[in-house]
Design a protein around this nucleic acid. Structure first.
Ligand SMILES: [Mn+2]
Ligand SMILES: [Mn+2]
Ligand SMILES: [Mn+2]
Ligand SMILES: [Mn+2]
Lengths: 141, 141
DNA sequence: TCAGAAATGTAGCATGTGCTACATTTACTG
DNA sequence: CAGTAAATGTAGCACATGCTACATTTCTGA
């Protein structure tokens, strides 16, 4: 008997891996935008503190994201968002909010909702985001 | 002016990183269980094909998961799930299904739903899963 | 102003996961 | 049962992200 090879759905796994490779960009830009709004500027140590990682890891990742065009920064200077970075941050922040709102709506405890939203957000496509929004308004009638 | 340090929510980021470190275990055990059900056995190449990665990467990861007690296997032999592995696979499969069902309910297109579910699932806590189920039954009245 | 604190940066290490190239073993098929 | 195809395994590379230890620069307050 030859193997049925049960369909092969590698596409979803490939997409998930691609999403993961973009997660830092999403979390870092969103966080940097928040810090700038809250403190007037974003500094590496502060990014590290909020992410719960060492300042060295934050430094290196910020440098990579600068090379990829999300940040602008110089030695011993604060971190600025490029237009590309601002756009990504704004999209992520809005998406993050929508997800939190949804989790809230269906009765997930606040603390848990915050954790789940932080992980889930990166995997929510534009289509699902739209569906979530529509569902929220429909359900909150 | 001293920095406001805008709350510090590093807990959610830490939890997300921990979740990621467990993702392979979840996807691999679920997939291996599926393959055993569909084909009678699970082989490394087949796992690799379904995940869309090289057989070498699959081999190495399966070995790690064996050391962590999810699989049992020997050279040139198929992959078996331990009790621990079976338990994880069953939980993940059920959760995966629930999420797909929910995405379907709110009108996300099939293909997109499959991709989103594959990524999102790992970040859905027991609390959110329960809330999702309740919401599904409430909404599908 | 200037000494100590805070921030930034470098060096070097680890782990997980991705790859190709090549070797060996097992399975299938004529 | 021999020869080929498929599966498995090894070696060795890359990259992202985590860490500590230590060096240097900048900021700050007495
Ligand atoms: Mn996040
Ligand atoms: Mn976020
Ligand atoms: Mn998955
Ligand atoms: Mn899954």
């Amino acid at each position: 008997m030859t193997k049925t090879t049960s369909s092969i759905r590698s596409g979803a796994f490939k997409a998930t891996r691609k999403t993961h490779s973009n997660e830092s960009a999403e979390d870092y830009t969103e966080l940097v935008a928040d810090l700038i709004e809250a403190n007037g500027e974003a500094r590496t140590v502060e990014v590290a503190r909020h992410l719960g990682i060492s300042h060295v890891t934050a430094l290196r990742t910020i440098r990579r994201l600068q090379n990829e065009g999300f940040f602008e920064t110089a030695k011993h200077k604060p971190i600025y968002l490029t237009a590309k970075g601002k756009k990504l941050a704004a999209y992520c922040k809005e998406r993050h909010q929508t997800i939190l709102q949804f989790l809230n709506l269906i009765g997930v405890p606040e603390k848990v909702a915050e954790v789940d939203a932080e992980g889930v957000e990166h995997h929510i496509s534009k289509e699902t985001l739209r569906a979530l929004k529509e569902h929220i308004s429909k359900f909150a009638e």
